[in-house]
Design a protein around this nucleic acid. Sequence first.
DNA 1: TTTGTATTTCGTAAAAATACGAAGCAAAAG
DNA 2: CTTTTGCTTCGTATTTTTACGAAATACAAA
Lengths: 110, 110
Amino acid sequence: MATEVITYNEDLIKMARIAKALSHPARLQILNILSKQTCCYSGNIAGEFPIALSTLSQHLKELKDSGLIQGEIMHPNIRYCINPENWHLAKELIDKFFNGYSLITEECCK
Amino acid sequence: MATEVITYNEDLIKMARIAKALSHPARLQILNILSKQTCCYSGNIAGEFPIALSTLSQHLKELKDSGLIQGEIMHPNIRYCINPENWHLAKELIDKFFNGYSLITEECCK
DNA sequence: TTTGTATTTCGTAAAAATACGAAGCAAAAG
DNA sequence: CTTTTGCTTCGTATTTTTACGAAATACAAA
């Protein structure tokens, strides 16, 4: 097979990257848990829903790679936080994307 | 391997589903093209960027399945539209998700 | 009915995502 | 120094995604 690589606009790729980070319930769950804290989270995330530690770690890595969260080792724990800047950035990108549509007459969509 | 299925909150699954639909540049590109129209799009999407027709069709199917767009056969063309209701629904879900965070002091994230 | 046009489905290949247990690692505690 | 604790990396299996060309399909037009 070819499985050719197509190049896309930079913003599109960035947006797709964020969406991909949000595209798994476990990762959304993790973000939800982080959000419920007044500050960073240092507890046992794996204790909050049934997931293997190694799987959780993979999801955390993905979220970290996407920039949405940040983690810092504070032995013997890890403090996980949402990354505020990137969070806002993501929010803006998505807003921009969704507001780019006029959706004028819903008539013509019939 | 087990590859166990974990059950998540319904809203989380819905949100993940939408995010997944948005997680590929080609699909974002398609949505962008649809958005540039004053109404539905009946042109040749494959002509707007290099992609095989069959691949495009697959992406369109995913977008349709996610509910974000709708397509209607108007031979010899197809009219593709954004699905306004689901679009708003998606927007609201995402907004709710992103606004769920207080992100109070960015201090504590340092 | 045959031809043309536009799209989808099928078959298939390759890559990426998902999940787990076992093993590894790094710092604190003993 | 050894043990404990908590997380990550490795190895691996399975499933899903992505991509394409070829074949099929559907209707309109000739």
